[in-house]
Design a protein around this nucleic acid. Structure first.
Length: 298
DNA sequence: AGTGTGGGCATGCTTCCTGA
DNA sequence: TCAGGAAGCATGCCCACACT
């Protein structure tokens, strides 16, 4: 391939400015360099691009053909360069987030309000990843980050740790389990467990606590909203395993009590999974930094 | 180290403008 | 009309740099 973007830019500048000298000034090269460029195209194709009879350069048919190409290509390239530059600076772009936990809304939504103030030109969208497998969407670029506590080996995906948390069993203030220092799996065998309305295999309380001990709760009730779950727990209609950031407010107001799950507690880390090449984008990096800052304060 | 390429410097040529 | 100067382009030569 012989025709280069550099040459199209030169041809466009020469035609628009009317002579080599002014075009050379605009392109930050010497008149001589520009003349060499044009001559090299002319020699390669064996065609003249300009009629050089007067001082004013006039396009030949071949020159017009190449200039038409330059008029189409150069603005598109410049527009794309600008868009990429802005994307790298973070002044435009998008942040499509998939979250794998219902309770993440509790910290994510206030964070996004703060984020939108800082990055008003970034389009932000949040999708609940529980009902779908978010990883193919992340790999294909359909979404930009997955908020998850499951760190799995994925090629070209980096897991940025956001914060550590502990899942606790929330119970009513006067619940019999408040007498225990920590909860054991069999303690739940006689109580109603309130969970989010998702399949059992997506619930950590089953995966890491009940199923390994071969224990089933006496009954299970599912709800969609965290607030409703907390109300049901507070009124003694069941117990629920929730991360500490969800319980912080209710514990502070003393409307419920909470106990660790197991002697050592059930600890986890929340991650933001992003594609490797997107990690350096300013608006994505800033989201990670803001999430860390916000949750380290809690 | 050899080669290719882009671009700068120096210089010559052509065209245009201006004043006598 | 013509001479002189200015403006603009072309070209040979050279150098720096990238690539193999």
């Amino acid at each position: 391939m012989f025709i280069e973007l550099r040459q199209l830019r030169s041809l466009k500048a020469i035609y628009e400015l009317g002579n080599l000298t002014r075009a050379a000034q605009q392109l930050n090269v010497t008149q001589s360099a520009l003349s060499h460029q044009i001559r090299s195209i002319e020699r390669y194709f064996g065609l003249s691009l300009f009629i050089r009879k007067q001082k004013q350069l006039q396009l030949t048919v071949a020159g017009e053909r190449l200039f038409a190409l330059a008029q189409r290509i150069v603005p598109q390239v410049e527009e794309t360069e600008l868009a990429l530059q802005r994307m790298a600076e973070g002044s435009t772009g998008r942040l499509n987030i998939a979250i794998e936990c219902h309770s993440c809304f509790d910290w994510l939504l206030p964070l996004l309000d703060q984020y939108r103030e800082r990055w008003p030109n970034i389009e932000v969208d949040v999708r609940l990843g529980i009902s779908l497998d978010p990883w193919p969407s992340l790999a294909s670029g359909d979404i930009d980050t997955v908020i998850t506590s499951d760190k799995t080996e994925q090629s070209d995906i980096v897991f940025e740790s956001l914060f550590d948390y502990e899942a606790l069993l929330a119970v009513a203030r006067d619940h019999p389990l408040t007498s225990k220092q920590y909860i054991e799996p069999h303690d739940l065998g006689v109580h109603t467990l309130i969970t989010y309305a998702v399949p059992q295999h997506q619930l950590d309380i089953f995966n890491y606590f009940l199923t390994p001990a071969n224990v089933e709760p006496a009954s299970q009730r599912s709800v969609e909203l965290t607030a409703l779950m907390l109300q049901l727990v507070a009124s003694g209609r069941g117990v629920a395993a929730l991360p500490n950031w969800v319980l912080a407010d209710s514990l502070a107001k003393n409307t419920i009590a909470a106990r660790p799950l197991g002697r050592k507690g059930m600890h986890g880390t929340m991650y933001a999974a992003v594609r490797q090449y997107q990690r350096q984008l300013a608006h994505i990096n800033e989201f990670i930094v803001m999430a860390r800052q916000r949750m380290s304060l809690n």
